[in-house]
Computed example of a mutant assay.
Amino acid sequence: MYIAHSHVLLDACCVLNFCASGKLLAILKSIPAQVTVTQVVQERELKTLQRLKNEENEDANQFETAIIQGLLTVVDFESEEEVESFVNYAAILRDDGESAICAIAVHRGWAIATDDKAAIRFFQQTAPYLQVLSTPDIIKHWSEEAGVDSPAVRDVLNAIRVKGRYSPDKSHPLRSWWEAASTDVDR
Results as ranks from 00 to 15, higher is better:
143 S>N: 13
167 S>C: 03
156 V>F: 07
154 R>L: 10
163 K>G: 01
163 K>M: 07
157 L>N: 02
147 G>L: 07
140 K>Y: 15
138 I>K: 04
150 S>H: 01
133 L>K: 13
150 S>L: 02
140 K>A: 14
136 P>I: 13
161 R>E: 10
169 D>E: 02
167 S>H: 04
131 Q>F: 10
172 H>R: 09
142 W>G: 11
155 D>W: 03
135 T>C: 14
166 Y>W: 02
134 S>D: 13
172 H>F: 06
148 V>Q: 05
150 S>C: 03
156 V>W: 05
144 E>A: 05
170 K>T: 09
165 R>G: 00
136 P>K: 13
132 V>R: 07
150 S>N: 04
168 P>H: 05
140 K>M: 15
159 A>K: 11
148 V>W: 12
137 D>N: 08
171 S>L: 06
159 A>M: 12
141 H>T: 12
160 I>H: 01
169 D>L: 03
133 L>E: 11
145 E>K: 15
142 W>R: 14
157 L>E: 05
169 D>N: 00
149 D>Q: 14
144 E>R: 08
146 A>S: 15
151 P>H: 02
154 R>Y: 06
154 R>A: 10
138 I>Y: 04
158 N>T: 03
166 Y>G: 04
172 H>D: 09
170 K>S: 14
147 G>R: 07
146 A>R: 15
172 H>N: 01
145 E>C: 12
159 A>R: 15
142 W>P: 12
165 R>Y: 00
171 S>A: 09
152 A>E: 13
139 I>Y: 13
152 A>P: 01
136 P>L: 13
133 L>D: 12
131 Q>H: 09
165 R>K: 06
160 I>G: 00
167 S>M: 05
139 I>E: 12
141 H>F: 09
135 T>R: 15
133 L>N: 12
152 A>V: 08
133 L>P: 10
160 I>M: 04
173 P>L: 09
133 L>T: 06
143 S>Y: 15
167 S>W: 03
151 P>M: 03
158 N>V: 01
138 I>S: 06
171 S>T: 04
162 V>Y: 08
146 A>I: 12
131 Q>M: 11
155 D>T: 05
171 S>W: 02
158 N>W: 01
132 V>H: 09
159 A>S: 15
144 E>Q: 12
149 D>R: 14
168 P>W: 03
152 A>I: 05
151 P>I: 01
132 V>E: 08
171 S>K: 04
161 R>W: 08
153 V>F: 06
165 R>Q: 03
139 I>P: 08
144 E>L: 08
144 E>N: 09
145 E>I: 06
132 V>G: 06
139 I>Q: 12
165 R>M: 03
152 A>N: 04
169 D>K: 00
145 E>L: 10
144 E>F: 07
153 V>H: 02
145 E>S: 15
142 W>L: 05
159 A>N: 14
138 I>P: 00
154 R>N: 06
147 G>P: 04
160 I>N: 02
138 I>M: 09
146 A>Y: 11
136 P>M: 13
170 K>N: 13
158 N>F: 00
173 P>N: 08
141 H>M: 12
162 V>C: 04
148 V>M: 13
138 I>R: 00
140 K>Q: 15
151 P>D: 04
162 V>H: 08
